[in-house]
Amino acid sequence: MKQFGGPAAFIDRNDINTDEIIPAKYLTEITKKALAPHLLEDLRLEGQDFDPHSQVMQEARVLITRSNFGCGSSREHAVWALEVNDINVVIGESFARIFRQNMFNCGILAVELSKADLDKLFGLKGKVTVAVDLDGEQLTATSSTGETATCTFTLNPFDKKLIGAGGWLAFADANY
């Protein structure tokens, strides 16, 4: 099975919507690759522009954010924009339903943690790397300063099947 995890980038905001993840003006693209340079390009955090091209973002394989990530438009382009930037896990307190389903439908992970666990992750100093144990439903974050934090999570059993099958299209083609 695919491995999940890697260097993490933190985005400390609730309710990041899919217009922010990939603006509508790029929805005319008909290849996923074309979305790559535009991930989160219009995002603002506390009135400040966010730099989606920072080194941390370039290296990130995991995004750690807050609640209701991916709300708004159903555009799967938001998930693809993450995918083509090699992000394979998003960790948050909660997700909007369509975004969460789009993640699993593409065979990548949306992990929900409690607010307390997220506060623990946001509290880590230095560079953070996340390792995900899918079967054990547990993840470990290790920071460059030597701290670690371990959190458990629950995956919906159907979403777990989709990950195993490599996404919904493959699963549905085999079963229906």
């Binding site: 159903s74 799967e76 789009n102 299209l169 549905a172 083609d173």
Partner: peptide, 12 residues
């Protein structure tokens, strides 16, 4: 729904 759900809807 997203595009993958739509694909499966169209197909199946």
């Amino acid at each position: 729904v997203g595009t993958t759900d739509l694909e499966v809807g169209i197909l199946k």
